[in-house]
Design a protein around this nucleic acid. Sequence first.
DNA 1: TATTGTTATACTCTATAACTATA
DNA 2: TATAGTTATAGAGTATAACAATA
Lengths: 158, 158
Amino acid sequence: MRKPAKTASPATANPLPDMGGLDAALGFRLRMLEQTIMRSFARHMEPLEISPTLYSILVLIAANRDCRQSDLSQALDMHPPNLVERVGLLVQRGLVARKRDASDGRAQMLDLSEAGRAFMEKLRIAHDAHIADLRDRFGAERYDGLMALTAPSLPPPC
Amino acid sequence: MRKPAKTASPATANPLPDMGGLDAALGFRLRMLEQTIMRSFARHMEPLEISPTLYSILVLIAANRDCRQSDLSQALDMHPPNLVERVGLLVQRGLVARKRDASDGRAQMLDLSEAGRAFMEKLRIAHDAHIADLRDRFGAERYDGLMALTAPSLPPPC
DNA sequence: TATTGTTATACTCTATAACTATA
DNA sequence: TATAGTTATAGAGTATAACAATA
């Protein structure tokens, strides 16, 4: 009982008539927005094969040499098993080195390898391009507005 | 070579001294924000065992009886295989029924079952509580600001 | 006993290739 | 030839239980 779509473009053919209030939910809206940003990230990082989480781990290690894995898992709000597995990937790829802390035999201290430090420069360039791209497509006003409302200095709503 | 944390609370013990500019990235900020919202969603929906995606599928079916799976995958920006699998879950749980379209033998039309319609009322109550909770913790000003900057009427940055 | 790291495991979500049956 | 749905599969991310080594 559906009328055939005739000349609509493929991307917008047969849009649902009613979102049922779904698009009034902040979580849904943010999810759609974030998906857009992640895809831009993925496009710009594609040749480097770095996901958002791997990127954030590398940036934190670069800024905090000899940090512990437990520090990272707190800073990124990740569960330790998941962080350990992701760091393991970076170690396998030769970008990160783990070494035991002499003063605490339980801790693993993380640092970038020589290759890891060289890699950071490529990452920085690709990430800058991603940010410039985002700001261009959002428009400066909307981009800056979102930055203001997501500032880490704001009280966390958790 | 790390000074022992003495009296810091567990949640904020040994915060990393330097985020390396990571917290200046919109994508990172949105990811942290969304994680907070998803956890609130999960807490409120826990007894109903409904994830954000399953929720959005149910809401769209409820608002568009006899819609096609391809319509849903477009409206939710999901790849068809992923949508089909999630809908299959809802069919297994007896909340959704699939039936062939008489006028197009390829299409599957979706509708809520009797149980599905009853379930929507529980969903609505839990989701309202989730939203009220969010608005309370974000504060009305920040919440409304985020709503304004993520409005679906804004041009999509993709 | 508590903390750090680790293994194993499960679930959600995204993505692509390849196939079917209909149109 | 194109579309709607489906199967299989791979990867990212999140979550919990259970354990070893160390403090």
